[in-house]
Simulated assay, not measured.
Amino acid sequence: MLVRWLAVPAVLMVFAGSTWAGECPSLLQGSLPKLRAKESIDLCQRFAGKPLVVVNTASFCGFAPQFKGLESLYQRYKDQGLELVGVPSNDFKQESKDGAETAKVCYVNYGVTFTMTEPQQVRGPDAVHLFKVLAEQSSAPKWNFYKYVVDRQGKVIANFSSLTKPDSPELIEAVEQALASKP
């Protein structure tokens, strides 16, 4: 009788764990270190069920002024649940090797308040999991400030080149579509 009572909670834990794991889309599995912080961002815990814009950034890229537009986009839609994640990368040889300098560009020069990670690889076999899945669902970034709009189920609904400004009607339309998506 005691064995049966012990087995029930164990079975419930297995089902609860598999349900939770099933709710986390592949895109959001794993974690990334937050820029200039001692914490890591558990992508699933932080972003599951939320509309998301993911951008690979570079401090010394000619498109770096887009940080201001990205911040404006975030401020415009954050109260509706939009999350924005910037992932610095030196894959195109335009990011600082020093995280402190990257943080200065983002936080001081451009006033970024959305989530930024430590620099990561975003292309090829060594790309972080997030960008491998983004590439599988759409395409790998072709340059810095490549933008992905992800719905609440963790599916890319649109991606945009570096030339697409954060306030472009096409990007805004995709963000609003992601906001309207069902969890």
Rank of each mutant, 00 (worst) to 15 (best):
E136D: 12
S138H: 14
K147D: 01
Q45Y: 11
Y148C: 00
N109I: 02
M13A: 14
K182I: 10
Q120N: 06
V108E: 14
M116R: 12
R46D: 04
P183K: 14
F47S: 01
L70V: 03
L134T: 04
F92L: 02
Q137H: 10
E176R: 11
E95K: 04
L43D: 07
A10K: 09
Q153S: 13
Y74D: 04
Y110L: 05
S138D: 14
G99I: 00
V122C: 03
S161W: 15
P125C: 00
A140C: 00
R46W: 13
A127Y: 10
Q94K: 09
V149D: 06
G69H: 08
G124Q: 06
F60G: 07
Q75R: 14
K38G: 13
D79C: 05
A135Q: 13
S31F: 04
G124L: 10
N56V: 03
K104P: 01
G86Y: 07
E170L: 07
F114P: 08
K97W: 12
C24I: 15
V128E: 11
V108R: 13
P141H: 02
T115A: 11
E176Y: 08
E83F: 08
G111E: 04
N109M: 05
I157S: 01
A180K: 08
S138Q: 06
E176Q: 14
A21F: 14
A64H: 07
P166A: 02
L163R: 14
F114T: 03
E118C: 05
F160C: 01
P119K: 10
A180C: 01
E83T: 03
V55C: 02
K34Y: 13
E118L: 05
Y148G: 00
I172Y: 08
P183I: 06
Q75K: 15
C61E: 01
P33M: 03
L2I: 12
L43N: 05
T102Q: 10
A100S: 11
R123D: 03
V3H: 14
D167E: 13
F92K: 08
E170Q: 10
R4V: 06
M13N: 03
Q137D: 06
Y107C: 00
G62H: 12
H129R: 14
K68G: 00
P88E: 09
G124D: 07
Y146W: 15
K147C: 00
